[in-house]
Computed example of a mutant assay.
Amino acid sequence: MNTNYKTLTASLLIFIVTSVLVTACTKAELDNTFKAGDPPPVAGGFVNSNDISPSNLVAHFAFEGNVNDTKGAVTGGTASGTTSFVAGRKGQAYQGSTNGFIVYANPGPIATLTSFTASFWINTNKHDGGAQGVFNLAKQDGSFWGNFFVMIEGNNTSSNRMFMKLHFEKNTAPFTEHWAEPNGFGAVDYRPDDMYGAWRHVVWTYDAATSKVRFFVNGQKRDLPPGTEDRKADPAGTPLGALNFKSATKFVIGAYQNQLGAPFNAPEPWMLPYTGKLDEFRIYNKALSELEISALNILERQGR
């Protein structure tokens, strides 16, 4: 009987160990718990955010304790006012303030974009009293606006919808101001919801071949108001085509060109520096595909 008991105990022990090993081997591995050094690819076969159209990536501001463009083409970056680096979506991030911003003396290939993708992570709270500038390609010819910029309007309501605007110019076109406003001139349903107090991935693209603007939040394409997606060069409806910026001189992160002072015009009271966090700011010289944008969102969210 003692022998039988020992045999039964040994059998049970083997069964338990085997069950644990089988469970461990067959347990589904979530896509955000992959083993270091052996990450599973996402749709498109990408395993790292830098795998996405690397030949078209012209600027990448990772903000890993510095303001440098990791591509090395946008140079002369200096921080003004109160700026710092904090925990980001991936590594560290830029932290703006009511008087802080970064200016680059040489915008490099950003100055010659004909198509673009601007991809960045924001983590910001509501503000009031004006519009905060996220980035701006300055124009040194006395013009009121810069060549290419994104701003976030103030929000003093209970709504968590964000009113963000993209502006870019084609300076040989008779009509030179090209706004892409996801508010539909008052139709707030086009503004993305749940945008404050957490990291959100924002992407704007413009494709010279189609003259179309697209807007993405957290990897998902957002509808724009009728007529906003298709950009025209003139009232006759000529497609806008390839961009050509004018007198592009400096690149600003976290403010407008006006914060630079003369000769860029003094900032008006509503022109505010960006006070939130900003991370993984990438600029491409083409409009990324929806697959590429989705992959970029997933990979950077996973810290890859």
Rank of each mutant, 00 (worst) to 15 (best):
F116D: 04
L13M: 12
T114G: 11
S11M: 14
L21Q: 08
K126D: 08
M151A: 14
N155P: 13
H167E: 14
G44N: 01
F46P: 06
A209K: 12
Q132N: 04
F216S: 05
Y284Q: 05
D31M: 09
Y196N: 02
A138L: 05
I14H: 06
F185W: 11
V42W: 02
F168V: 15
Q92S: 15
A173L: 10
R214E: 13
E280R: 03
P109H: 05
F245S: 01
L13T: 14
T82R: 11
N171Y: 15
P263F: 02
T210F: 10
L113M: 11
N66C: 06
D230E: 12
V47H: 03
M195Q: 02
K286P: 00
W179A: 14
N99Q: 07
H60I: 00
I122H: 10
S211A: 01
N218C: 02
M162D: 10
L166V: 10
V20E: 00
T98G: 15
M164E: 12
Q220K: 14
P263Q: 05
Y196E: 01
K27E: 12
G133W: 11
I110R: 01
I16K: 07
E153A: 09
H178I: 13
N183R: 03
F135A: 04
T82L: 09
G108A: 11
G108L: 08
P235F: 04
W121G: 06
K126F: 04
A233M: 04
S159K: 00
I110C: 01
S19N: 10
K246V: 05
D223W: 00
V74S: 03
Y206V: 13
V103G: 06
F101L: 05
L13Q: 10
K126G: 07
G77E: 10
A73Y: 15
A111V: 05
T7F: 08
V252Q: 08
G108F: 08
S115V: 07
Y284T: 02
S119N: 12
G76H: 09
I110H: 00
A43S: 13
K232F: 11
S115N: 01
P54M: 02
D223H: 01
D128K: 13
A287V: 03
A73T: 15
N147A: 04
T114R: 08
G303C: 06
T70R: 11
M151Q: 15
N68T: 11
G81T: 11
S84A: 12
G227Y: 03
G37C: 02
A138W: 07
T26H: 04
D207C: 06
G261Y: 00
K71N: 15
E29G: 08
E280Y: 00
T82N: 15
T33G: 00
E181M: 08
D194E: 10
N4W: 10
E280I: 02
N125A: 09
S247C: 00
A118P: 01
G108Q: 08
A262P: 13
A242S: 14
Y104E: 04
H201I: 01
P239V: 03
V134M: 04
G146Y: 14
L8F: 10
K212H: 14
L224C: 05
A236L: 10
F116S: 03
D230Y: 09
N56E: 12
W145P: 07
